[in-house]
């Protein structure tokens, strides 16, 4: 099993291809277990700063977030992969995305001890500077999640390049999956909130009436506040930031020397 996880992390395209082209129950179990343990242990450290109960809740919610997002988008992502000409069936599409999330889970899980140390050393939620600690905590975790996401999607991109007929199709499939999963993942993270646990608010598994409101409306309102009532300008700036994040991916798919032309 450790050899398989190492192969997953190394992300050699031919090794990853075997996972997709000869799917086995064992590999599926490895992916599921990695996601549960990796995201679970990471989630524990995210919530632990607020309260041990919160840590337990987030340890359950983090893997749940991944599985709910994949379940919700599974049919759509499978259909898009087929329609874009990737040649990947529904099962292979799901497996490819599970592989990508497994890589992220391994990275996040490996950082869990460090983050646990950080949580134990941060000012407590009832300290006078709890607000600053909460903000710092969120920024650090956002950066870590972003890093894990970039690495995991890099693996997914390489996998798609070797399993699809052309780089163009691989790129289109990746963008379709990424867009859908990011869009729904953000909304599900809103529904499953709290994760960090705002100081001053009670510890809870879910907020009262979790389905009320959307992530995007909240972001829109926040942008309005941040920009003094000009959310459109804020939205344009956010799009530009997103574009900058996507530059490595664009380079990967336009570089003729990356894996295969």
């Amino acid at each position: 099993m450790s050899a398989q996880l190492a192969a997953l992390l190394i992300g050699a395209p031919d090794d990853l291809r075997v996972w997709i082209e000869t799917p086995s129950r064992r590999n599926l179990v490895i992916c599921l277990a990695t996601i549960v343990l990796g995201f679970g242990s990471y989630g524990l450290t995210v919530g632990l700063w607020r309260a041990p109960t919160m840590g337990f809740y987030v340890a359950l919610k983090m893997p749940a977030l991944i599985f709910i997002t994949l379940a919700c988008n599974g049919l759509l992502n499978g259909m898009l992969a087929l329609l874009l000409g990737s040649g990947l069936g529904f099962r292979q599409s799901i497996l490819a995305q599970l592989l990508s999330f497994s890589v992220a889970a391994l990275i996040l899980g490996s950082l869990a001890p460090v983050l646990l140390f950080m949580a134990l050393n941060a000012p407590s939620p009832d300290a006078p500077n709890a607000g600053t600690a909460h903000a710092n905590y969120m920024v650090i975790h956002t950066a870590i999640i972003a890093y894990a996401g970039v690495i995991a999607n890099g693996h997914l991109a390489r996998l798609l390049v070797v399993t699809t007929p052309s780089k163009k199709i691989a790129g289109a499939t990746l963008v379709a999956w990424l867009g859908g999963n990011a869009f729904m993942g953000a909304q599900f993270s809103w529904i499953l909130r709290p994760f960090f646990g705002t100081p001053g608010l009670e510890v809870a598994f879910l907020r009262a009436d979790p389905m009320r409101g959307t992530f995007y409306e909240t972001i829109w309102r926040s942008m309005g506040v941040m920009t003094g009532g000009h959310p459109i300008e804020g939205f344009v700036a956010a799009c530009f930031g997103l574009f900058l994040l996507l530059i490595p991916l664009l380079k990967f798919f336009t570089d003729p020397n990356s894996i295969k032309s």
Binding site: A71, C72, N73, L75, L76, G78, M79, L80, L83, G180, F183, M184, Q187, F188, W190, I191, M211, R212, G213, T214, Y216, E217
Partner: peptide
């Protein structure tokens, strides 16, 4: 039929937002 099949794929996504948002434009 293909349009309908794809919209069927979008159904879970749209359902989540139909239950979450109160904004008709969104």
């Amino acid at each position: 039929a293909l349009i309908a099949a794809l919209l069927l794929g979008f159904t879970p996504v749209l359902w989540v937002f139909s239950q979450s948002t109160e904004s008709q434009p969104f």
